[in-house]
Design a protein around this nucleic acid. Sequence first.
DNA 1: ATATTTAATACCAAAACAATACCAATTGTC
DNA 2: GACAATTGGTATTGTTTTGGTATTAAATAT
Lengths: 255, 255
Amino acid sequence: MSDASFQSTSREWSLSGSGPLYIQLRQLLENKIECGDFRPGDPFPAEREIADLCSVSRVTVRKAVQALVADGYVVQRHGSGNVVAESVERVEQSLSRLTSFSEDMQRRGRTVRTSWLEQGIYPASPEEMIALGIRSDTMVSRIARLRIADDTPLAIERASLSTNHLPNPEKVKNSLYALLEEYGCKPVRAVQRISAINLNAEDARLLEVPLASAGLRIERISYSSHGQVIELTRSVYRGDAYDFVAELQIGDAAK
Amino acid sequence: MSDASFQSTSREWSLSGSGPLYIQLRQLLENKIECGDFRPGDPFPAEREIADLCSVSRVTVRKAVQALVADGYVVQRHGSGNVVAESVERVEQSLSRLTSFSEDMQRRGRTVRTSWLEQGIYPASPEEMIALGIRSDTMVSRIARLRIADDTPLAIERASLSTNHLPNPEKVKNSLYALLEEYGCKPVRAVQRISAINLNAEDARLLEVPLASAGLRIERISYSSHGQVIELTRSVYRGDAYDFVAELQIGDAAK
DNA sequence: ATATTTAATACCAAAACAATACCAATTGTC
DNA sequence: GACAATTGGTATTGTTTTGGTATTAAATAT
């Protein structure tokens, strides 16, 4: 309630630039979000409040805010106020540890076979560029294999690595990680994103299931001990034949 | 009431901050619990008492208290009074990461709604009998709810419990785990099985997606500290709107 | 001059907030 | 067991806050 001359960070609330006010204001607000001045998740200042702070009309503020809404920066909520949104529209939830493919298969006593689909060096796709953090003119090593358990195709694994980390993808025979260890870039941490998809034509054929069957899609990014991205692996598992098992401890250990 | 300057402990009962009263009050009460002012185990001040102390309406107190109930801090008991819950908060938080959206959704500025589909006692299905380890003539408590964010249905949760552990499923309002705490059977461990399915007619209708769309199916079995099965929860998430994220440590730390 | 953009004023509508009054369940006492 | 006191539960309503919209006037571009 007290006066708002308090100033949280380096940037102020003054509009001293040139051009339309609502454009300047939009820039100002966007910066405040990008800088982390407004944390995604919590309330965005009310429109009248911003209007007072910047000494402009509320409609001007509105125009700026609406531009941010259009770009997905903030969500408007009539009666309760606006909030800073997270940029992703897909909802995420965390799990603890997951069992790995081989681990799981062994436990179920099944025989595992691998069929190679792809093994070589190719121009990087946009998705690979982003995930691996490489430039557009770089090549990447790709390894794609079909996992077969007891003559039933279970999963397709497509791994992409920078050629720095894996210059000779054709040499991978069994364990990718064993070879990586030779080059001294062993992954120590990984983040997996698990979602459900309807299989496309190619994947459905490979997995020998009808088109549009449900599949588990797992995108994994592995990091070295230095925090460097090592590999991007996109896998698709047959939904009708594979389960991921996660075990959680719900400890009182907290506090 | 003028003489509210009375002060029971280190902290006062005055609300001098800014913002909605019930939020301030919630904060105040939560602090008192965290500080050990109210010890877990026994009685929480009556609502009318708090109302007098803070010179606010009882409904305001109620709203604050209900927020605490939703987070598992307090258990309400009609007629006899409220009770400070045990260290449920960690349980709630951990399981919360898996089941409830509220936190994640609020972070994204989305409004969360829950629609109850089923709440009662029914004859056990074969699957439930096996998972819960009960005899064929036993009844089970079922709770089924639809999780909705911004008018977009995101998930269906179907929980089944033995009637020994949850004799009154219709009483579950917010937190299932807070209620379970009353009966002294709180889950400490859970195993989740994640798979992909093509949604059946009913689930597709509820989630407002085309028939046979891909969905994430998560089956969770929670255990008490005695290794007894507490609950079986079968959830279905919209594949096009939900990701699960898992972070893994690779290598030595395993096992 | 005329049309478009810009920004202000004033008013509308929806949601949340908080208070009053009343209902229902449990407990203790007689 | 009946009854009263205490406690949580609910409905209703008025107020406040907040976003939403129409209108209008000035500035700018065409």
